[in-house]
Design a protein around this nucleic acid. Structure first.
Lengths: 214, 214
DNA sequence: TTGAATACCAAGCGCTTGCTTGGTAGCGTT
DNA sequence: AACGCTACCAAGCAAGCGCTTGGTATTCAA
């Protein structure tokens, strides 16, 4: 799929995850992953994803970055604020990455596949960990924090709805298609391992596209 | 869809949830919901579903059925055993119900729709609560308990795979289609409310069928 | 040289958690 | 009437939890 000239062009345009992170940090919209706060957020994202929010203690988090549990509260006022911050940053990063992937697409079909692939990459932590938390641990967030992350998420969802509408998906209603996709994609976290040779994330995205936009 | 004579025949054949429960209780494969243990399992299913396993305390469970927290451990050896028992019973019940729904179907398409609708009904607690726990709280179960429930689940999944294979689903691989469906269907728990007029569970099942088996 | 700010440690507080223990009321059987 | 069994209560234990407090080392600006 795609000739090599086009692939080259895309490779040039595409920012690496690190470059994107740097850009967003410079904008002041993301925490520097090398700062203490950033390292804590990264550890939290990994642990919340692996063990779940409730089963991860602040002592676990502290041990992961080599400080004592009490010191955490110099950076965050509560454990829940850590979860909220992880969700915020993950939403912002995944949104920026998907937008850039979508914009690089020529056809509507290609754009939808870019969205699918981008979300799969986010779920499986190819650039930064923590995206799958957004679905799994949603109820662990207080009402207000939910509202806050939800507002951030709106533009992300708009990209999806536009892409689905343009791709003439089966079943009509883009909102329904998106809702089914959210579930289907996030659930891949518990069965699909990108390490498995035989099916890459790009392959999987193609298969899913074939079902939802035949 | 379907003429009224056929619908009548189905109505006669179909067991009500209560009748099915009674039959399974008589077989000794399900706990009598009127017994103390049964009432506890029902309360647990509801609370685990509403608040999540980790955020539901044994005191919550006890209060729900009007006993003290310590008395719980006359019926179960640990909180996790309650979760395991809920998952076991829910799996058995949903399996029996889906099997009977699938068998009542004439065509492969109809059979797949029956599976989709049956799982949607299970997820949204139309007969008994707790089915959505199977996906959401899977990681709260110990390794051994997971294995135990998994073994029970195998025949349930086989019904699905057969139905998907027979219905010539888009995308080919029935295992992949099933995995996407597991995610898509279980996620409906967090956005679809059967009370909403405008879209019934049967409608939703039809829409989903149209996407996955066009 | 001083002072404020930052990032962390050391210790532990108050509370909640799952679970235990010892006892008792009610009931069916002999 | 005596027994044993089931189902529960009353009380609380030990551990783990999120979080607080008071203090210290380092840094950097004035």
């Amino acid at each position: 799929m795609g000739n090599s000239a086009q692939e080259l062009a895309e490779a040039i345009e595409e920012l690496s995850p690190q470059e994107l992170i740097c850009a967003l940090v410079a904008q002041g919209v993301l925490t520097d992953p090398d700062s203490a706060r950033g390292r804590l957020l990264n550890a939290a994202a990994r642990l919340f994803e692996q063990k779940g929010y409730a089963r991860t203690t602040v002592r676990d988090l502290a041990a992961e970055i080599g400080i004592l549990s009490g010191s955490i509260f110099h950076h965050f006022s509560s454990k829940e604020q850590i979860l909220c911050a992880v969700m915020r940053e993950v939403t912002i990063f995944a949104g920026a990455r998907m937008r850039s992937a979508a914009e690089r697409s020529a056809s509507p079909q290609e754009r939808l596949k870019a969205c699918i692939q981008s979300e799969l990459e986010a779920i499986h932590g190819l650039a930064v960990p923590g995206f799958s938390i957004l679905v799994v641990e949603w109820r662990s967030l207080s009402e207000e924090s939910q509202q806050e992350v939800l507002r951030l998420r709106e533009e992300y969802e708009q990209i999806w709805l536009d892409a689905i509408s343009a791709a003439h998906c089966a079943g009509g209603d883009p909102a329904l298609v998106r809702r089914l996709l959210v579930g289907a994609l996030s659930h891949t976290y518990s069965w699909f391992k990108p390490r498995d040779n035989g099916l890459t994330i790009s392959d999987l995205a193609g298969r899913i596209l074939a079902i939802f936009a035949p």
